[in-house]
Design a protein around this nucleic acid. Sequence first.
DNA 1: ATGAACAGACCAACGGTCTGTTTGTAGGAG
DNA 2: CTCCTACAAACAGACCGTTGGTCTGTTCAT
Lengths: 215, 215
Amino acid sequence: MGRNKYPEETVQKILDTAERLFIEKGYDRASLQDIIQETGLSKGAIYHHFSSKEDIFYSVCDRIGQRNAAILRKVRDDETLNGLEKLRRIFKVSLQPERQAKIFCMMPYLLDNAKFLATEMRSIFQEVAPDFIEPIIRQGIADGSIHTDHPRELAEAMMLLSDIWINPIVRPTTPEELSARCAIYDQLFRSFGISDLIDQEIKDTLIGYGELARH
Amino acid sequence: MGRNKYPEETVQKILDTAERLFIEKGYDRASLQDIIQETGLSKGAIYHHFSSKEDIFYSVCDRIGQRNAAILRKVRDDETLNGLEKLRRIFKVSLQPERQAKIFCMMPYLLDNAKFLATEMRSIFQEVAPDFIEPIIRQGIADGSIHTDHPRELAEAMMLLSDIWINPIVRPTTPEELSARCAIYDQLFRSFGISDLIDQEIKDTLIGYGELARH
DNA sequence: ATGAACAGACCAACGGTCTGTTTGTAGGAG
DNA sequence: CTCCTACAAACAGACCGTTGGTCTGTTCAT
């Protein structure tokens, strides 16, 4: 094939396929040959749009991150909620939608997907905590619902524990373990004024993810 | 060379070299060819003792884990300390010795060393927390120095935050950020009876690691 | 004599490059 | 406005060095 009228569609097809393969098989075991076969494109096409396999991977992660950021931005910029309420809202919206379920139900546990794990953690430290959670905590400090001298660090600890420690897609987790983690999580952040982030509904959703991830 | 009288020395030489290379360059960028060159051995020798590159990597990680376990075991089995004191002791001994400095000062930040990061986290969840920290916390519960219904989960959260979040070898960290993290850490665990784990001496050591890691 | 401990040629597959081909499109002439 | 042309975007696929891994020896301690 020669010049295409809509190259953006090709880029999306590559990203869609690569995202699926990287999630299903992990970065190492998903080869360029796999992407070539499943897209029906050629090596030339792929290397015309991307400079390397890693470039594809990070573009995939970018796209996931941007989807996530859109959700977080909505809550952060909501004018009707105080700081603490926004935190509660974030736990609802980022765990409830079947978005995660669809993406991650066929993924091996994140601990077996080292490249994804590292990227997830990097995004917590470089984007989620500083751009979304910290501003919300600052608002909470201003409106009196949250108390701390270190909003950035509090944000980091909160998100690391919820996304990496509690999250049952990181490693096999029984409902009992999940309950215990939630209880500890709640107690950890109480003294900052942060409470009741994880209600029964969220806990049930997480248990559901745990069941999904088991296969 | 034909049959060697002391094959164990060969195994150690492979592990020593591989450990250095994996730490310096990361798993992906350290090739078997590198190991062959730096050990002076042949491919046949290496594959006689190990079944794959991953096998070498996990053997390296095992060895690191066992060195670590030896230190932790000593504290856990100390008969003269109560639970809380043992926790304080663990922070001293596992951060103070120049062991970490030697191993990690030339390592790229753990976030750029995905395979090591994932292995470190796995060892926290599968060994450090259940085999060493949880028993210590249980002792603390019994002797009244620590209060919680979920010692395993408390152990996991403690170690995840100290080893992955606070630790300046995971990502670039300024002394101010480190201080803030330590302050948050202290407040997080106070309500469990756990306090003053990180004193000024440890903080200074960590700041030192931060400086080392910067190059 | 046997097999553990190597040595090193060999191999398929991988990520990446390079050259070649098709074709949409911008710019100028009429 | 239309036609032509130059050009570069959008591929296709042969090719390449390196990689992890195998296989067939060879040597020598037991």
